[in-house]
């Protein structure tokens, strides 16, 4: 009696319907670029695109967690630079590689935890806290290096960027592992559940006994640590740690996240979407480069794509009424 008029629907579509939309956007883009320049769809170019996407894609994972909690992290790019130079100088000082890597991750983690504490204990709005950190971390990186890049690393370190696993570049493998873990964490762990709950309704989360301060701090810490990871990969690729690295990465990461369907209002979003978002941005850049489009025009195109993606998303959501 009660179930009259109710049609059961598989939960696959309700979870991933939005991603299928973004994915078809990405595939459409690929087809168009393939038609325009045959070189686009070669294995070597696609690997190149994936490699280009890795740094932003990894930073965007942290950003996705943060945005799901209804927060924002403007400091990821600067933290990347700071973590990079700290690690590089330790490597130059002769610290063993694993310790130097740990120091890179740790520097990012530390910056993120400070963000988290400013937001939870200090009760600062995330925008303000991370805006401050953005400047502090960048300034620290510049002070630390007196504005000069730190270059030249042993082969063991550089192989993090140059090596491959069965033909797939190591950074791409690392990125995929990060995404797999992040997806698992969001969908299947307590941390993931709490991340959504805090963003969806912080008060209800608190009243459900969730230690909101702790978990929010963890999420910002995670975002910082992933910036540290991105710093390692970028430094290895460039064979140089630059205090001005990662400029505007926060904006690219936010864009990838938002194109991927994560709501800035919090409580919603997936890393699968973010990965597609990051790939769309990388494919677009790569395609435009192959087509010889000037970098000025590229900026206009990319900005328009971001706006269009979000407009379409909102339109699709409204259609349900």
């Amino acid at each position: 009696m009660r179930s009259r008029g109710i049609i059961l629907r598989g939960n696959f579509l309700s979870h991933y319907g939005r991603q299928l939309g973004t994915l078809s956007g990405l595939l459409g883009l690929v087809v168009v670029l393939w038609a325009l320049t045959p070189h686009f769809l070669t294995v070597s170019n696609l690997l190149n695109v994936a490699e280009q996407a890795t740094i932003i894609a990894i930073v965007a994972v942290g950003m996705t967690f943060v945005i799901i909690t209804a927060g924002i992290d403007l400091s990821v790019g600067s933290v990347l630079a700071f973590a990079g130079v700290v690690m590089a100088s330790l490597l130059h000082a002769g610290l063993p590689l694993p310790l130097a890597l740990a120091a890179g991750l740790g520097t990012g983690l530390l910056c993120g935890v400070v963000n988290g504490l400013l937001i939870t204990v200090g009760r600062l709005p995330p925008f303000i806290a991370t805006l401050g950190m953005m400047s502090v971390a960048r300034g620290s990186a510049l002070m630390f290096t007196e504005g000069r890049p730190i270059s030249g690393f042993p082969e063991s370190f550089r192989s993090l960027a140059t090596g491959d696993v069965m033909g797939i570049p190591v950074p791409v493998v690392i990125m995929l592992v990060v995404y797999a873990i992040a997806h698992f964490v969001l969908r299947r762990t307590k941390l993931g559940r709490y991340t959504y709950a805090i963003g969806g309704n912080e008060e209800a989360a608190l009243l459900s006994g969730i230690n909101v301060k702790l978990y929010k701090t963890m999420v910002y810490g995670l975002a910082g640590m992933l910036s540290g990871l991105a710093a390692i990969l970028l430094t290895a690729r460039l064979n140089s740690a630059q205090p001005i690295a990662g400029m505007n990465y926060e904006l690219d990461a936010i864009a990838a996240t938002v194109i991927g369907g994560t709501s800035l209002l919090g409580g919603e979003g997936t890393v699968v979407g973010t990965l597609i978002g990051a790939l769309i941005m990388a494919v677009l850049r790569n395609g435009l480069n192959l087509l010889g489009v000037s970098s000025f025009i590229q900026q206009v195109v990319i900005g328009s794509v971001i706006i269009a993606a979000v407009l379409i998303d909102m339109w699709l959501k409204r259609r349900g009424k």
């Binding site: 299947r188 762990t189 307590k190 941390l191 559940r193 709490y194 959504y196 709950a197 969806g200 309704n201 008060e203 209800a204 989360a205 009243l207 459900s208 006994g209 969730i210 709501s263 409580g267 919603e268």
Partner: peptide
Amino acid sequence: QGLVLPLSVKENLCLPSVDKFSSWGVM
């Protein structure tokens, strides 16, 4: 105060007792 509106029935239902449904943080 009671609900996390964008989350599902199941997720809301188990929110205060997540520990009951997870081991080592995995649901």
